[in-house]
Design a protein around this nucleic acid. Sequence first.
DNA 1: ATATATAGTGATAGTTTGTTCCATTTAAAT
DNA 2: ATTTAAATGGAACAAACTATCACTATATAT
Lengths: 199, 199
Amino acid sequence: MSTNNKRNGGLRERKKAKTMANVQMHALRLFREIGYNATTVEQIAEAAEISPSTFFRYFSTKEDVMITDNYDPLLIASFEKQPPELSTLQAVRNAMLSGISELSADEIKTMRERNQLIMSVPELRAATLNNLTQTMQLLTEMIAKRTGHKSDDLAVRTFAGAVVGVNISVMFYCAENPEADFAKMLDEALAKLEEGLPL
Amino acid sequence: MSTNNKRNGGLRERKKAKTMANVQMHALRLFREIGYNATTVEQIAEAAEISPSTFFRYFSTKEDVMITDNYDPLLIASFEKQPPELSTLQAVRNAMLSGISELSADEIKTMRERNQLIMSVPELRAATLNNLTQTMQLLTEMIAKRTGHKSDDLAVRTFAGAVVGVNISVMFYCAENPEADFAKMLDEALAKLEEGLPL
DNA sequence: ATATATAGTGATAGTTTGTTCCATTTAAAT
DNA sequence: ATTTAAATGGAACAAACTATCACTATATAT
């Protein structure tokens, strides 16, 4: 490698990231304007000034353009920083919330719009839920490691399942109540889980 | 209406039910033999001796042929029969398990095969999880009714989310451990939830 | 028993998503 | 500057759906 670009900030990488974000932006706009199903990939590609084939190089399906994000690595990183004296659930709670607290007001607004769209379109909802199973498996491994259990221990699995389930219910809640603050609701819901689901 | 057929046991209804079961059977077989994605709707239709258009009259998507079931009404019926002195979670637990306990050994075997296929094919998994959100909403209403809360109460939502999440984790567990008994695992997992997720 | 209405079926053609292959352009490394 | 590797666009394609229409089988009424 010569003087300037090596691995990360190379021109190619930057251009790719920019193109991807651009495509996602146009997709979100079109989905809102004319509906998810009514929007064709061709239209998205045209709006983003790329070819349909290039669209599919960035996103393997039409759904992916709304689903793709990278919270999992952040979640792991944050979880591993949690002090060992916290309960497991406290650690998970802090980890999940710290990712959100770093977002700007603008990003939060986009996230809310995205969440509403996702929860109202069956295809997107299904893809997102499917994605959450990966998060669940990650959580499982993280918890197993922290507590010294095996990752195929039913107790660990159950724990991770409950946390992800609560997360899903909060996503629904916030989609129905647009004024609700996602982070706050998630915090309250996980607190209830810790209290043993009082009713 | 004349002498014989009225609403339920009419020839039409029976024929439809028979056709539907037949299509599902052939679909499951083909999916196992040559894989989900490699199997076309045309092949399923041919095997079941119907036309592709008829396939889509019975199942609105290819996924549906594996997903369609009717546990929700059974779940409701069973839940409403649970005595009021039980805790809410106990009532849910009994309701979920009673549906399974009525199955024959053969049906359980088919259910296990179906579960393994579903959990291993992303499309089917996504569709199933999406379906579970309906169950979650049903659970929410059932629990709200039983406990006298509103159905948009966060505590109720959280409860339902946790139960469904645990259900999902058990589905994964059983897909990975084919020898595991689904009913038993679900029972144990819900017990752990009731104990406050000990680790 | 027969006629009429209704519901299920199959055939066809069309749209859209998503894949594959190849030629062309563009960035990176020496 | 030249070579090497990656990204792109275009075109042709398979399969999942959709819509429509004519045809058949079933149910209902007289």
